[in-house]
Design a protein around this nucleic acid. Structure first.
Lengths: 200, 200
DNA sequence: TCATAATTACGATACTGTATCGTATCTATA
DNA sequence: TATAGATACGATACAGTATCGTAATTATGA
């Protein structure tokens, strides 16, 4: 039985590697220079393509930037050791490392700065990074709740926001995050959340 | 004794109102558009001056932007009611309000995004806003420690970072901050920090 | 004392050189 | 043949500068 090939489009086919190179370059320069300062000329040079090559795939600068952000993925392990504090600490340490990568924080800065002008950037960053990370931390706390480890009345979402937000606040204060910071955070939050047995 | 006046300079004196109008306009546009997109033409129009007028006072765009940030001041009350949770909540609610002002978060975004290119913006924002706010919250916790309200071993700076950082994380997640958020945060952190009496 | 010269500030306008987005036109490729 | 890819280009924006006429002040000389 003859294999039926898809109907070929006449003309030269697009090179998918070229497209990927452009997206990689765009994401890199978006983080390094911010949206407004990032230029299509610079992306073209970095990806070793011409500008019309990019315009054949994306209709505008904003279109390309949003496509680049769409390639973002939270690729961090999900600890599930049975110990809530240990899982929180491990997850937060992964987060800390990604924030301290070159331009880790400036990507966040640029999506916030562009909220009024190019809102889809912040929307995509939320969808691809912020929401999945919250879900990871929330899952750890939900498991703790199922195990009966948590006292009643605490807002788990507020706890998650504090755990992640503390890194932003620390960076904003000092542009660095010391080792052991995650442990300090979890120590306080865990004390604030867990069901109390008789302490001695 | 005759008062010795400074030697007057011949020529038309500079109008301090003009200078102030320029700084106000610069700060407004910096927050609204970000550093890179903010233009000197737009500031001149907003402040109803000419560009040479601005260049007579500041040598460059970066010079003007840093001068504008230097005018920032944390002008929030410092609660000292004797109740640590109440003081924390009141302080954080002021913080929340300022973050939710138009462009409150985008100013933070732009100083972060510009860290590599115009680092003095982040440095000044830290000096004028971030550090004073941390000090306010830290003072509340230090008073609690003096009153003997805190358990041993908790890192108060980590607690402060969580309390402020949670607002950044919440904004990043949703571009809004609900009423009562501060209360939820303080409930957890206070439980995590305070000396335990017999709970019932 | 008064009028004028000298000086600086200011608005309005124009200019310079550079950067950037998006498009036109050409050659190369499948 | 039709599309991909490259170079060149047009239009516009922008930071910074130059110029002109007028405004506002001090200094100076009659």
């Amino acid at each position: 039985m003859r294999k039926i090939a898809p109907t070929p489009t006449p003309g030269r086919p697009r090179d998918p590697e070229t497209g990927q190179r452009i997206l990689d370059a765009a994401l890199r320069l978006l983080a390094a220079q911010g949206y407004s300062r990032m230029s299509l000329d610079a992306i073209a040079v970095d990806a070793r393509v011409s500008k019309p090559t990019m315009y054949r795939r994306w209709s505008s600068k904003a279109d390309l930037a949003t496509a680049a952000l769409r390639t973002l993925q939270l690729a961090e392990p999900r600890p599930d050791s049975g110990s809530t504090p240990a899982d929180l600490i491990a997850t937060l340490e992964n987060f800390s490392r990604s924030l301290l990568r070159p331009n880790g924080m400036s990507l966040i800065g640029t999506v916030l700065a562009e909220e009024a002008h190019t809102p889809e950037l912040l929307r995509l960053f939320r969808e691809r990074i912020v929401t999945p990370r919250r879900a990871m931390l929330r899952a750890i706390l939900d498991r703790a709740a199922e195990r009966g480890e948590l006292r009643a009345g605490a807002d788990l979402d507020a706890a998650v926001q504090m755990l992640t937000g503390a890194f932003y606040a620390r960076y904003l204060a000092q542009s660095k995050i010391e080792p052991g910071f995650a442990r300090q955070l979890v120590e306080i939050v865990w004390n604030g959340l867990r069901k109390v047995k008789a302490r001695r």
